[in-house]
């Protein structure tokens, strides 16, 4: 009789908890899900794109993205959208430090090299303001091996390359954002058993003396 009552009580408590959990889980699910965050940034068509995810691929919604230049001066900041993305116009080439703050102590840093920005600069909004005579000069300086290429061809080439490389870059981002593998999990368990085994052995030797 008493056991029956207890069984019922447990079911009620369990059901209640799942209900509460379901309702509240909606609010802060990303934060509860995460133990780390990933940020991936790449340059495409004169813009810097960033993608922020928790392990397993859940996007960081509304995460704070801060962009610093090589000297540590903050250039801009923004928030990630529903898909964890945030894009901004490519600044003049410099090593960019992109920091993601996902709340509750979650933070990560991505460094974007100046070379990557340098290639994209002719497409950037900054170059649109320059005089038409400048792009050929720029292409002359950069592409030392192929001076014959006109600026139109260069632009087209870059556009095509950007388009072709985009899936690759996404895949690369997804690869970086994978959770731990079996190797790491079992390796960790092995370390725990091994370390405590060594400790037990040392302790038993001390006792034996």
């Amino acid at each position: 009789m008493e056991d029956g009552c207890r069984g019922l009580l447990h079911k009620v408590v369990l059901g209640g908890f799942f209900l509460v959990a379901f309702l509240l889980g909606q609010g802060g699910r990303d934060a509860a899900y995460a133990h780390r965050v990933n940020l991936f940034a790449w340059v495409e068509g004169g813009k810097v794109h960033t993608e922020s995810r928790f392990p397993g691929g859940r996007p960081v919604k509304g995460g704070r993205v801060l962009v610093y230049n090589a000297a540590g001066v903050k250039l801009l900041e923004g928030k990630t959208d529903e898909e964890g993305r945030f894009s901004f116009p490519a600044p003049p080439p410099t090593d960019l430090k992109i920091v993601l703050e996902a709340g509750m102590g979650h933070r990560t840093v991505w460094t974007l090299k100046a070379q990557e920005l340098g290639e994209a600069a002719p497409h950037g909004p900054s170059s649109q303001q320059t005089t038409p005579s400048e792009p050929p000069a720029a292409s002359h300086r950069e592409a030392g091996g192929a001076p014959a290429l006109g600026p139109e061809f260069r632009g087209l080439l870059e556009e095509v390359l950007d388009r072709k490389l985009e899936p690759l870059q996404r895949e690369l981002a997804a690869l970086r954002q994978q959770g731990p593998t079996f190797r790491e999990i079992f390796g960790g368990i092995g370390y725990i058993l091994g370390l405590l085994g060594v400790a037990a052995w040392a302790a038993s030797r001390k006792k034996g003396r």
Binding site: F18, A21, F22, G25, Q26, R29, A32, Y33, H35, G56, G179, P180, I185, G188, I189, I192, L193, L196, G197, A199, A200, A203
Partner: peptide, 28 residues
């Protein structure tokens, strides 16, 4: 106690990987 500590530590170590589906979301 050490064997027990090892087992419980292992459980703690992997618990963070246990994702519980909870409606449309999951927690660990």
């Amino acid at each position: 106690e050490m064997p027990k500590v090892a087992v419980v530590t292992s459980a703690f170590f992997v618990a963070s990987l246990v994702h519980i589906p909870l409606g449309p979301t999951s927690v660990h």
